Simulated assay, not measured.
Amino acid sequence: IPDTFLVAEIAGRITGYLVGSVTQKRYLTDDLFENVVSNPASGGFIQIQSLSVAPKFAGQGIGTALLAALKDLALAQNRDGISLTCHSELIPYYEMNGFSDEGPSDSNHGGSLWNNMVWENR
C-alpha cells in the first residue's frame, strides 16, 4: 500500500511513519491488521493502522505533519475521509488534528478498548 504509507524524515533519519489502507468501511476493523490488499484508485476511507514517532522526536509536530500529509492525499485521491482507532487519552490529540470522536470501537485489537475517530473529506 505504498500510496498511503508515509515516512517522515529529517536529515536522512526516519523520525516517524504512518500506515494506512483504504476500505469502503467507515471504521477500522481488526482484519486490516492481517489482510493487506491494494488500495482502490479512489473513494473509501483511509484506515490508519499505525502512527508512530521516534521517541527522540516526540512533541515536535511530526505526527501532526504526517496526519496533514495524509489529509492532502485523501483529497488528491478523492477519499471519503480518514478513520482510526485510539485509546481514550489520545482523543484530544486527534480532535486537535480535525478528527471527530464517534464513540467506542468494536475493535479488540491487542485486547484493548479503542475509540473511533474520523476525519471526513467534505
Rank of each mutant, 00 (worst) to 15 (best):
A58I: 09
G59N: 11
G59C: 10
G59R: 01
G59L: 00
Q60W: 01
Q60K: 13
Q60C: 02
G61C: 06
I62F: 02
I62G: 04
G63Q: 08
G63T: 01
G63A: 11
G63D: 04
T64Y: 00
T64V: 01
T64K: 12
T64E: 07
A65K: 05
A65T: 04
A65I: 02
A65P: 13
L66R: 09
L66G: 07
L66A: 13
L66V: 08
L66N: 08
L66F: 10
L67E: 02
A68V: 05
A68N: 14
A68C: 08
A69V: 07
A69W: 03
A69Y: 00
A69G: 02
L70G: 06
L70H: 03
L70A: 01
L70P: 00
L70K: 04
K71M: 10
K71F: 02
K71Q: 10
K71Y: 06
K71P: 04
D72F: 04
D72Y: 00
D72C: 08
D72A: 14
L73Q: 09
L73E: 03
L73K: 15
A74W: 01
A74G: 07
A74R: 02
A74H: 03
A74I: 02
A74N: 04
L75Q: 15
L75R: 15
L75M: 14
A76P: 11
A76K: 14
A76W: 04
Q77A: 07
Q77S: 08
Q77D: 12
N78K: 15
N78H: 12
N78W: 05
R79A: 13
R79L: 13
D80Q: 01
D80S: 02
G81P: 01
G81K: 02
G81H: 01
I82L: 15
I82R: 01
I82T: 06
I82K: 00
I82C: 07
S83T: 11
S83G: 15
S83Y: 07
S83P: 14
L84I: 08
L84K: 06
L84V: 10
T85F: 14
T85W: 14
T85R: 15
T85G: 15
T85H: 12
C86T: 14
C86Y: 05
C86Q: 10
C86I: 06
H87Y: 13
H87P: 08
H87F: 10
S88D: 06
S88V: 03
S88C: 00
E89A: 14
E89Q: 09
E89I: 11
E89H: 10
E89L: 10
L90M: 12
L90K: 11
L90P: 03
L90T: 07
L90E: 11
L90Q: 15
L90W: 10
I91R: 13
I91P: 09
I91D: 07
P92G: 12
P92M: 05
P92K: 06
P92A: 02
Y93F: 11
Y93M: 02
Y94N: 12
E95Q: 14
E95H: 08
E95V: 12
E95L: 06
M96P: 03
M96T: 09
M96G: 06
M96V: 00
N97I: 05
G98N: 05
G98C: 01
F99S: 07
F99A: 11
F99Q: 10
F99H: 04
S100L: 15
D101S: 01
D101T: 04
E102G: 10
E102M: 13
E102N: 09
G103L: 00
G103M: 02
G103H: 03
G103S: 05
G103Y: 03
